[in-house]
Design a protein around this nucleic acid. Structure first.
Length: 433
RNA sequence: GGGGAGGUUCCCGAGCGGUCAAAGGGAACAGACUGUAAAUCUGUCGGCUUAAGCCUUCGAAGGUUCGAAUCCUUCCCUCCCCA
């Protein structure tokens, strides 16, 4: 984990508020006071249904990170137990149920990935799996002790349920809210957890947990939801050319990750800087005020910082260099003030993304079509043909017109060959030795 | 348990015996314009070879036909109504 701590010791509620993390909250004044009064333990549940987190989970992750940086204790709750049920909230269809083994594997990955953003050392944060208390539950006892506190009428009124009532909802999914409420109750009882946060689709579940805790423990706990992040054209955040933007460098390379943020729309720059970097808000406001061409510097900073947080400063630097190498610099004169480490760049050699190619293939004559497929820039030869036909294919910055072109060893004599598809995507093919 | 509707290419959604690789929209990709924006316009949008053609696809498996996404049978799944 990196050391920024720009707002160390601040009230996390204020930090989250000014950075745009808060969509709904149960009690603003009480929440603020809570953070001033004690070291607060707060939790967010993470769904272990995928084998990697993606950019869509960044908001909750960053929220936990802000909490920890300001001296409080986050709990990341892996839904190992609830994952066996499947949260219907915000989904329009029934999700397939995962096996225990899959869930456990995914939970492990989750832990490793979260460790990049928050420190689990010495009780600074906890990673818990709700399977620990959900699995041993006895159905009859649970119904009697917990179920009696729930009103089906109320549950039916929940937005998340209403939505699904149209499409159909299985009993097991309907129970999800009860289980999540129980999580909150247990966390409050056993870990002194006073706050649950989550995406805006979690509101109903969070409120249910607050109610349950009040009824059983007579304790007041709180809830916050985050806004659903969409870009200015209303698209759900976290999708890019190749589908989801993953936090795992094997699934989405640091370069692609950098590019995802570098391509942020003008109108989203300020919000994204608030969500995805630790730069102070005052600086972010300045950056967002930059006039158009120079606003690209703010995007570079956003991409650099975001990549640096999720991967490493070195990865961010490499991606940054490779990018300015291809596209040029937004602020060559360094007129923009920033506290970002992007300024420390020594302009070392750029490391472009590359793919290794077996020598044998090259020696046998390598068709351009295959080369583009190999580079991962297109998914089939037909697509490569189309690309060439449409004038979007380049080799070493020269547009190709001939789809029957054969590449040979000579073309690779400089140690590699850079292919480009369209304006933004490129890949270097390097002979494997 | 009874009755009804339906499962189509990434998504939504037409098609209901040949002219269907399958309308339309969205997403996506490319080109022009640009700031590696946005908006707009144009083109592309199953695979292989590109000339003609071949192969795979319309929940699954069989069947009827010269020929099926379209008809029949069985099975799986979803929704609605009644119990």
């Amino acid at each position: 984990m990196k050391n920024y701590f720009p707002g160390a010791g601040m009230n996390p509620y204020s930090v989250l508020k000014e950075r745009g993390f808060i969509f709904q909250e149960t009690d603003e004044e009480a929440l603020k006071k809570l953070f001033d009064r004690k070291k607060v333990t707060a939790y967010i549940g993470f769904d272990p249904s995928a084998d990697s987190l993606h950019a869509g989970s960044l908001v909750p992750i960053m929220a936990l990170a802000h909490l920890q940086r300001n001296g409080h204790r986050p709990i990341a709750l892996v839904g190992g137990g609830t994952g066996l049920v499947g949260d219907p909230s915000g989904k329009t269809e029934t999700r397939k149920l995962l096996s225990r083994a899959e869930l456990e594997g995914n939970a492990e990955v989750l832990k490793r990935q979260l460790g990049q953003y928050i420190s689990f050392d010495e009780d600074q944060a906890l990673l818990l799996n709700n399977a620990a208390w959900l699995s041993p539950l006895n159905y009859i006892e649970f119904l009697r002790d917990i179920g009696k506190h729930f009103s089906v009428n109320k549950m039916l009124a929940a937005e998340s349920v209403k939505l699904r009532l149209e499409k159909g909802l299985t009993f097991i999914e309907f129970n999800y809210m009860v289980l999540q409420a129980y999580d909150f109750y247990v966390l409050n009882k056993d870990y002194d957890c006073d706050l649950q946060m989550g995406g805006q689709d979690q509101w109903g579940n969070i409120v249910a947990g607050i109610d349950l805790t009040r009824r059983i423990s007579q304790k007041e706990v709180y809830g916050i939801t985050f806004p659903l992040i969409t870009d200015s054209s209303g698209e759900k955040f976290g999708k890019s050319v190749k589908g989801a933007v993953w936090l795992d460098s094997k699934k989405t390379s640091p370069y692609e990750y950098y590019q995802f943020f570098r391509n942020t729309m003008d109108s989203d720059v300020e919000r994204y800087l608030g969500y995805f970097t630790f730069l102070p808000m005052s600086e972010i406001k300045e950056l967002a005020r930059l006039k158009p061409p120079l606003l690209n510097r703010a995007k570079e900073i956003l991409a650099f910082e975001a990549t640096s947080i999720t991967h490493s400063e070195e990865d961010a630097r490499n991606a940054y260099r490779a990018s300015i190498d291809k596209f040029g610099e937004a602020d060559p004169g360094r007129t923009v003030q920033t506290s970002s480490a992007i300024l420390e760049d020594d302009k070392g050699a750029a490391k472009s993304p590359q793919v290794l190619v077996e020598l044998e293939i090259i020696q046998n004559g390598f068709s351009v079509l295959d080369a583009f497929v190999k580079a991962g820039l297109v998914s089939s030869k037909g697509e490569a043909r189309r690309l060439i036909k449409q004038g979007g294919a380049y080799i070493e910055e020269k547009r190709i017109n001939d789809e029957s072109l054969i590449l040979t060893g000579k073309d690779f004599s400089d140690g590699g060959l850079t292919l480009r598809a369209g304006k933004k995507r490129h890949m270097k093919l390097v002979p494997k030795r």
